[in-house]
Structure formats: C-alpha cells, structure tokens
Design a protein around this nucleic acid. Structure first.
Length: 125
DNA sequence: CGCTTGACCTACG
DNA sequence: CCGTAGGCCAAGC
C-alpha cells in the first residue's frame, strides 16, 4: 500500500467518523482520532478536514462538505480552531443553526453539547 | 533528505 | 481560568 493510499484511507476514516456525530452535538479532533484507532494523530484529523473537498469542487473522494458535518468538530479546549478565511464564522453560524451555543469568543460547552462515545483506548486510562 | 508548518493534545504553574 | 512547554506526526518545500 503506497503512502498516498494510506493517507487516503486515513482521510476516509476521519470523514466516516465525523458523519457519526449527531446533529446539534460536537466532538473534538482528539476524540475522532481515538475513534479511528489513531489516538496520537489528532493533528492529522484537523489536516484531513482541511483536505475535505468543498461542495461542488472537482475531486475524487466520495466525501465533501456536502456530506460530512465538519463544523461539529472543535478543539479539546471547546473552541472553534482559528484559521484563515471566513471558515470560523461559518462554523459558528452552522453550529448555532442546529442549536449549539457559541459565545463571542467562539467557545462552546463540551459538557453540554459534547458527543464522546466509548473507545477501546479508554480502557487503558 | 532535512527542516518547517500546523483546523492538536496533555501536563503543569 | 489563563499561558507555556513539550510531544506528536503527515504534508510541503
């Protein structure tokens, strides 16, 4: 399996896990990493979302912003990760649109809206 | 091939 | 509840 194939497989795993997040709920990059059995790759989870094709854009992946709720993923600090462009504001709007409270500093209450299903890694805590 | 980046995370003051 | 330090690891150059 080539390195590129592995990267694609990782991206697909991330997108599939993100699709599991219920509407009106949020989870973290780190938790998605655990769900796909790559607990030390939280950074790459963010990277995968960055590579998620924008709706309408030409791409090979069977995933895009049209079928992956990328806005339901935030940092472990419960904050919408800062980045270039208007993506942050869009994410805040999409979350509020489904009932998730976002304050003026883009902070969210993980204790209230967090979605953290059990993972096999939790057994080693 | 080595070095820098970055939608991250935990531990510690 | 900040802010910092160190660790992590694929992608880009």
């Amino acid at each position: 399996m080539s390195r590129q194939d592995e990267a694609r497989a990782f991206h697909y795993a991330v997108y599939e896990a993100v699709q599991l997040i219920p509407q009106g709920r949020i989870t973290t990059y780190g938790h998605i990493a655990k769900l796909i059995y790559k607990p030390r790759n939280s950074r790459q989870v963010g990277q995968a979302l960055k590579f998620l094709p924008r709706e309408g854009q030409e791409h090979e992946y069977p995933y895009s912003t049209a079928n992956v709720p990328w806005w339901r993923v935030v940092s472990s600090a419960g904050v919408i990760s800062p980045r270039e462009g208007g993506a942050v504001q869009l994410q805040a709007d999409l979350l509020r649109q489904e009932g998730v409270e976002v304050d003026g500093n883009n902070k969210l209450k993980l204790s209230e809206f967090g979605w953290f299903p059990e993972t096999e890694f939790d057994e080693y805590d």
